[in-house]
Write a protein that binds this DNA or RNA. Structure first.
Lengths: 326, 326
DNA sequence: CCAGCCTTATGAAATGTTTCATATTAAAAA
DNA sequence: TTTTTAATATGAAACATTTCATAAGGCTGG
């Protein structure tokens, strides 16, 4: 904002054409060749840049979408944010980022701000069930918010089955599922369901431990101690609901003198490989993060909003990462 | 955007007051008690939300700032983004996020978009030296962009000295500095300088290895091999320019049969502790990320823009994390 | 009771676009 | 040459706000 930024009127004057003509040029609407050239020259000479606020006001469309996340300081969310941001920039959309710390009131407040900002759409991953602005293109990640809101998620159920299947295949006879955080009716809850379903089908004895946030460490210790006999853990395979948890559990067990993967094998969920090239932290069920991001953007920006699917489940895959025997 | 969103005019009519009065109420400008009540009641009844685009157009101020980062899919950047976002939301500012993949043209393009969007300010961490929009509040992270652009960074030089000091203190007699990426004139270059300066002062023989991006793994192997004698590494302490590199080097060495920290001690830089509670990955020099974020926001939003410092250096600290003997 | 003063509400103007009804121009047909 | 038609440039109006000059109202002091 030098002195005052040049406006379309200035460009029109400089080029000796009408205001509407300048507008057309900047919106890609066909215009006489000679006019286009004059306008472009004048615009460059004056250093004109279109004012998105005036455009947004008049046209009612802002080329801006909002991304609402619980955190961005978390490997899964940050990769998601990165890919979504890239996909949007590629399509000449800008991205407003809101972080909510997973708090209901913050999530609601975001929706208010979003309405004020007249965004063209919202992609949100919320921890709470909230009522969504009607009529505004909206895509939810990992949570079904309503019949008209498409939800994009990994195939968590199959992922859970896959984890159980792998553990059994690798020789486990007494697996367990561990998670922190109470069930919150999101798609991710299905990871445990899938695990349980497979163990039942195979008639294998299994454990399920879902802890509320809080004194998890103590409770985990208690859980492990209660499954110890003669210094040996009776559980020989653990499926953790996230990679972060898997890493914590691994450290915890190693501190107890239990070897991973010799004594107990661990599989996580997410598949974040942040520290690059070859250094995996745990065996895991990989979420197709890039695919999730692109699906969200495609759904949000879809021209035809009549036949949008209610739930898109994307395929997961298993990757060994040192906490299993394969 | 239901049918059409209610406007101030609608609110004014509903409340039986003038347009200007409604405006005042929503801008916190004092107004007669009875008026305020009428307006607020009418606004609530109609579900009115202020239109930020109209406001932005007329007032020329948008309560929006742009954050430009090379990536957000990286523990240091994502924590930074998180804290900056939080600080901004707390002050009722929104944040537009741009990721550039560290590419010069993308970084420049961002500045163009930023100008179009009439943001109230920019916080940027760029890998390239770029000419900045004049007259627009701007704060740079880790790089001095010009005399009028404040730069916020950790005290990288002291951090480098501290790392060297620690290694020597812990018994190393032949330390090395490793980094990937050619020097790019950013503040982070000073990490190596600090390391070197301390080694010189203490008259300790040391190695410096700065690699371009590319075939780093091969070159690192070559480097290590050239410092091996009878299967023993002559280097006994490594200061890596980042934690990510430290983790890679650790894995690499362990694969070569060299034990960490018994045979060689490693210190990284950044201090990201993403996998939560107590699980550190490497000994490190911790950057005060939250402090950096808040300093950026404070500087950017400072009322008095006359006496803004050119460079703010924030103190770092050492933390042991298992790759050193203390 | 009135003049003067201060406070506060009012609504027109301005912000920089897009859109659309109208005017202009050029080309084609008569 | 004149008329018709098609194509395209024009500029006023609209978008929802803020701002500011003006009007209205309420007090105070004479």
């Amino acid at each position: 904002m030098k002195k005052t930024m040049p406006t379309m009127k200035d460009v029109a004057q400089e080029a000796g054409v009408a205001l509407g003509t300048v507008s057309k040029v900047f919106n890609g609407i066909p215009v006489g060749e000679s006019y286009r050239i004059k306008v472009e020259a004048a615009a460059k000479k004056l250093g004109y840049e279109v004012n998105q606020y005036a455009r947004g006001l008049r046209a009612g469309t802002t080329s801006t979408i909002a991304l609402i996340l619980p955190h961005v300081d978390h490997p899964f969310f940050s990769t998601l944010a990165q890919y979504i941001c890239e996909a949007l920039l590629q399509r000449s959309y800008r991205m407003l980022l809101y972080v909510t710390a997973a708090q209901p009131e913050a999530e609601r407040e975001c929706l208010g701000m979003v309405r004020q900002n007249k965004v063209d759409g919202v992609i949100a991953l919320t921890y709470n069930q909230l009522e969504v602005v009607e009529g505004l293109p909206f895509v939810s990640i990992d949570r079904c918010l309503g019949p008209d809101i498409p939800c994009v998620a990994s195939d968590n159920y199959t992922g859970g089955r896959l984890a159980a299947e792998k553990l059994l295949e690798l020789g486990c006879v007494h697996p367990a599922f561990l998670r922190v955080g109470s069930p919150n009716l999101s798609e991710t809850d299905k990871r445990g369901d899938g695990f349980e379903s497979l163990c039942r089908a195979k008639q294998v004895p299994y454990e399920m431990l879902r802890l509320d946030d809080g004194a998890e460490d103590i409770l985990f210790h208690e859980f492990f101690r209660s499954h110890m006999e003669d210094g040996k853990l009776s559980i020989d395979g653990i499926f953790c609901s996230t990679d972060l948890l898997a890493c914590r559990i691994r450290t915890m067990l190693e501190n107890l003198g239990i070897r991973v993967p010799e004594d107990v094998q661990i599989i996580g969920f997410d598949g974040i490989r942040q520290f690059g090239t070859g250094s995996l932290y745990c065996s895991t069920i990989i979420q197709p993060v890039r695919k999730i991001a692109e699906t969200c953007v495609d759904l949000l920006l879809a021209k035809n909003r009549s036949n949008i699917p209610a739930l898109v489940c994307l395929p997961v895959s298993y990757a060994s990462g040192g906490t299993t025997n394969g």
